[in-house]
Design a protein around this nucleic acid. Sequence first.
DNA 1: TCTGGGGTCCTAGGACCC
DNA 2: TCTGGGGTCCTAGGACCC
Length: 421
Amino acid sequence: MQKKTFGLVDCNNFYVSCERVFNPSLLGRPVIVLSNNDGCVVSRSSEAKELGIPMGAPYYQQIGTVKEHNIAVFSSNYQFYGDMSQRVMNSLRMLVSNMEVYSIDEAFIRLDELPSNDLLEVAVHVREKIVQWTGIPTSFGIAPTKTLSKIANRVAKKKTKVGVFDIRDCSLQEQIMVNLPVGDIWGISHRWGTKLRSLGISTALQLRDANAKFIRKHTSVVVERIIYELQGLSCLDLENSSPRKNIMSSKSFGRLISDIESIEEALANYIARACEKLRNQNSKAQGIYVFLRTNPFQKTRPQYTNGATISFELPTSDTRRIMHEAKKLLRMLYRRGYHYHKCGIILLDLIPKNHIQNHLLVKPDSSDQDNLMKVLDNVNKVIGSETVFYLSQGTKNNWKMRSENRSPRYTTQWTELPHIS
DNA sequence: TCTGGGGTCCTAGGACCC
DNA sequence: TCTGGGGTCCTAGGACCC
């Protein structure tokens, strides 16, 4: 069997780094970026981490620290971050031949075909080029499996100056793993961490040396694979990007809503977005799931959560049709007297648009429908999103999310380009 | 006042068939 | 008293990721 070598390239504090590219005054300052509705802290500069702001902390609990230390705060700006992500990934694509974009800020690569002695040099070069071309600093982990490359990356980020760490050497792996809590391994989170500790396994090294079949009995095949990966046996290869199987669009309203009209309006907007994504990947949906919920954190108010699915006779990507069906589901789910916090839609069982089987009795989307959707998508792509929208999306936007500190969309909106004076 | 959004994979159990 | 056994498919829910 040929020995594999993986690299993991991971952007450092990605959202914060994006903000810093176009606003260098933020360098050296503590900076945080918030989730939608300014809810939680989702990205922190190293200075902010040192001040003890935890990942995922509710923002309102951190306001004291923010004021005290003059921390720069940004609302999420996903258009901007998404565009910066593409720049990073495109840069990487120019430098390596075999890669898998794993998330908005990381990519796995295969390094086997390169001479084994050159890998450190290659990694340093890749990092330099990415920061030069995009302004985004990255960390680089090298290892014989994906799981170990995650560990290597973590060391690169925390303990090295060059931002590269090579963990191919077995005794080095042991040195790192003996001190690595089992819950910090990629794929082991709260529940399984607790379970494994109850079985007497609290470090990565103990998990590596555990009996894989025994562990599988108490957890699942996923953890069994992790054990092999820790041993250096690669079970997870690069995955080639395939179209999404589900597309979700949901958001909390930014305030509590009781009337169904406002919820319908919000849902219509989420549907419009989801369907755009659907057509963009050339798929059609075979069903939808609509859900609605109150705010689970407000324990004193009555709680209600519900969702419902409907399958279509024939797959569709027509926003109007999906809105129509979703509205029926929403009316079914809605109960008067609750204060709602969030709703959403998931487009289910997506298939390529040209793989559709005919139906004896039901007509598929007509080419007129498809063309209309294409025209709408193009107008919104070229002139700006929501240039054309559905009346059911509303004009008042009284459910729009809070976003008080959003930076300009420097790279995706003509009116928000950075100025040089 | 105030706690994100968008995904994937795996498993257990029920329905159904012969 | 006493009512099969084995296979597949589907779905809901649970686990994880960033």
